[in-house]
């Protein structure tokens, strides 16, 4: 039996008095797109950070493609590609140098690294960003470069935090196409996003996190339960879309 691409059980993380992640269970099946959605501060980025080893959990188990992510770090890191929240890079490197550095860190042969980097730069439209110091790159370019470094070593599990944020529509379409080909080839993609439309378009399964807990999980159709995912999401997190009251000075006739 093929193990889940990502399996999380009883994950807990507390920051001072705030329990950011409160016993999350999550299963991502291999060869699928899995969306993680939730309001701001729900615990999405912390969960993703723990899954890829950037945040130490207080308790819980994380398995990546059948391997214990806390004990077999080297192996699980080799299998995973990460685009974390924050887009922090070695700012003095250019985009091309970032890819070369990333390939070197992972011990890719130079020729292979150069070929793959050139191809990613071409496909993702990063020709200008490749020669510009990261500190001077736009947020969209940084996002695409982050995605390129996550793909460079051909991982089996991609974990992407808000991959389409600040990316222009043309580049977003290209990225979607690249990710679809990645999943069609047997890879697994976990992405956190605020865009329900994106989840409906791309994801096979979705997990809704609210206040550090999973409030719904399953296929997109199951979670949507007959309505649009956006309406269902608002209902699940117990929020009421405000904005219909007040502001008369702004909306009144002039």
């Amino acid at each position: 039996m093929i193990p889940p691409a990502l399996e999380i059980r009883g994950l807990v993380k507390t920051f001072a008095a705030h329990r950011a992640v409160d016993g999350i269970d999550l299963t991502v099946h291999p060869g699928t797109f899995h969306g993680i959605v939730g309001p701001n501060g729900a615990g999405k980025s912390t969960t993703i950070g723990m899954a890829v080893g950037l945040v130490t959990p207080d308790s819980g188990q994380i398995r990546i493609l059948g391997h214990d992510a806390l004990r077999e770090r080297g192996l699980t890191r080799a299998l995973t590609g990460v685009l974390p929240d924050g887009l922090d890079f070695p700012e003095r490197l250019t985009g091309a140098e970032l890819l070369r550095y990333s390939a070197g860190l992972r011990g890719l042969p130079r020729a292979t690294a150069a070929d793959r980097a050139a191809e990613l730069i071409d496909v993702l439209g990063l020709t200008k960003g490749a020669g510009t110091p990261l500190a001077d790159c736009s947020t969209g370019t940084r996002k695409k470069l982050g995605l390129a470094q996550a793909l460079l070593h051909a991982p089996r599990l991609l974990v992407l935090d808000e991959p389409f944020e600040a990316v222009d529509p043309v580049s977003a379409a290209t990225i979607r196409q690249v990710l679809r080909r990645f999943v069609a080839g047997g890879g697994t993609c976990v992405l956190s996003t605020h865009s329900m439309l994106l989840v409906e378009q791309m994801c096979d399964e979705v997990t809704v996190i609210h206040q550090g807990q999973v409030v719904a999980a399953g296929s997109v159709a199951e979670v949507a339960a007959g309505s649009s995912l956006e309406d269902r999401f608002v209902e699940l997190v117990g929020a009421e879309a405000s904005g219909s009251a007040g502001l008369d000075w702004l909306t009144g006739a002039r």
């Binding site: 070369r100 390939a103 011990g107 130079r110």
Partner: peptide
């Protein structure tokens, strides 16, 4: 600033005895 990417193949040949990952960090 826009910096021309230097060819990767000639980079830091003199550090050939160092593991590739360490060499990458040295370059950065």
């Amino acid at each position: 600033r826009t910096t021309a990417a230097s060819p990767a193949t000639t980079e830091r040949e003199w550090l050939g005895w160092v593991p590739a990952a360490t060499r990458a960090v040295v370059g950065r």
